[in-house]
C-alpha cells in the first residue's frame, strides 16, 4: 500500500458533493500536486487529510495506519495555509518554535532546530522580527519553516504561493522544490496553477468536480491526457477533426490543412498564431528562431505528427 492512501474519500456539504469518491496513493518522499479549477474540492481534500474536515465516507491511511482515528493535533502533519496563518503576536522564532514546544522538545534542542530551519529557508537573521514586519515572501518562508521544523510525515501546502507576485512566485517555486528535495518530506501541494503543478511535482492529480481525472507524472499527463478535461486544463489545445493537438506540435508546411493567419502575437521566445481553417480556429505556437514567419492575412498550410 502507498505511504498515504486515500480510499473512496467523499465529502458532502448539504447535497453538494465537494469531494466524490476520491482515491489516491502517494509514495514516501513524493511531491504530488492536486491541480484543478476553483471549487473542485482541492482544499476540502487537504483539510480531510489534516483532520479539519470530516469525510462523509471513505478512508485515509498513513503508513498503514488509519489516519481518521487520529485527532488533528496528533497527526503530526506540517501545513502551510494559503493565508499563512502565522501567529502575529509571536516573533518568527517563537512561531517556528511553537510546534516543538507542543511536542515537549527541550529548550536547547528547540533553539538549535529553530535556527537550523530558519537557515534552511533563508531567514537566519529574521528570528526576532514579528510577522507583520516582513514581506509576503518572507512570511511564506516562516510558514514553511514552522511546518517543516516538526519533521512532519507529510507536508500539506494549500496554494502557498498564490499571494505572491509572478517573479517572486517563480523564485519560491524553485526554492520550495530544492527544500523539499533536501529534506525529502512527502509533500502534497494544492494549486490551480498548472505551470506551478508541472514545475514542482513528481506526479499531478488533475481534479474536476471532486474526482481525480488523471494521476500521472506531469510530462505524461501533458502528452497523453486521459480525458478532454485534462487536455484542456493542462495547457492550450486544439480540437481539429476530432483529435486534440497541442499548439506547439503544429508547424507551417508546404502542404496540409490550409488556412489564413487571423492574428499573430509576438511573445519573446515564441510566436502565437490564430489560424482560420475550414475546421475552425486553430492556435499555433512556434519557437522564435529568428527566421521570418508568416504575417497576418497570409495563407498557410498546417501539419502535425499523427501520434
Amino acid at each position: 500500500m502507498a505511504f498515504l492512501a486515500l480510499e473512496g474519500l467523499t465529502r458532502k456539504f448539504g447535497t453538494h458533493l465537494a469531494v466524490d469518491g476520491l482515491s489516491l496513493g502517494v509514495e514516501k518522499g513524493e511531491f504530488v500536486a492536486l491541480l484543478g479549477p476553483s471549487g473542485c474540492g482541492k482544499t476540502t481534500t487537504l483539510q480531510m487529510i489534516a483532520g479539519f474536515v470530516e469525510p462523509t465516507s471513505g478512508a485515509i491511511a498513513l503508513d498503514g495506519r488509519d489516519l481518521l482515528a487520529v485527532k488533528p493535533a496528533k497527526r503530526g502533519l506540517g501545513i502551510v495555509f494559503q493565508s499563512y496563518a502565522l501567529f502575529p503576536h509571536m516573533t518568527v522564532a517563537e512561531n517556528v518554535a511553537f510546534g516543538l514546544e507542543m511536542q515537549g522538545v527541550a529548550t536547547a534542542e528547540r533553539t538549535r532546530r529553530v535556527a537550523e530551519t530558519l537557515e534552511l529557508v533563508g531567514l537566519g537573521t529574521f528570528a526576532a522580527r514579528y510577522p507583520r514586519q516582513m514581506s509576503g515572501g518572507q512570511q511564506q518562508r516562516v510558514a514553511l519553516a514552522r511546518a517543516l521544523v516538526i519533521r512532519p510525515q507529510i507536508l500539506l501546502l494549500d496554494e502557498p504561493l498564490s499571494n505572491l507576485d509572478a517573479k517572486l512566485r517563480e523564485e519560491m517555486q524553485i526554492e520550495l522544490r530544492q527544500i523539499q528535495r533536501s529534506v525529502g518530506t512527502t509533500t502534497i501541494l494544492v494549486t490551480h496553477d498548472q505551470g506551478e503543478a508541472m514545475a514542482l511535482s513528481d506526479r499531478i492529480a488533475v481534479m474536476n468536480h471532486g474526482k481525480v481525472e488523471q494521476f500521472a507524472p506531469p510530462h505524461e499527463a501533458y502528452e497523453r491526457p486521459a480525458t478532454p478535461f485534462v487536455a484542456s486544463f493542462l495547457g492550450k489545445t486544439n480540437l481539429v477533426g476530432g483529435t486534440t493537438v497541442r499548439p506547439e506540435k503544429i508547424s507551417f508546411a508546404a502542404s496540409g490543412l490550409a488556412g489564413r493567419v487571423k492574428t499573430r502575437i509576438f511573445q519573446g521566445n515564441h510566436w502565437l498564431y490564430q489560424v482560420d481553417t475550414p475546421s475552425g480556429l486553430v492556435t499555433v505556437i512556434r519557437q522564435n528562431s529568428g527566421e521570418t514567419m508568416p504575417g497576418e492575412g497570409e495563407t498557410v498550410h498546417l501539419a502535425w505528427g499523427t501520434t
Binding site: 489534516a50 493535533a73 495555509f81 496563518a85 511553537f98 514552522r146 516538526i150
Partner: peptide, 18 residues
C-alpha cells in the same frame, strides 16, 4: 482573527485549552 489560525495551532499539536 485569521479563520485558519486555530487550525494552524492545532496542526502543530496544541490542545483546545492551549
Amino acid at each position: 482573527l485569521d479563520p485558519q489560525i486555530e487550525n494552524a495551532a492545532v496542526a502543530l499539536g496544541a490542545g483546545p485549552f492551549t
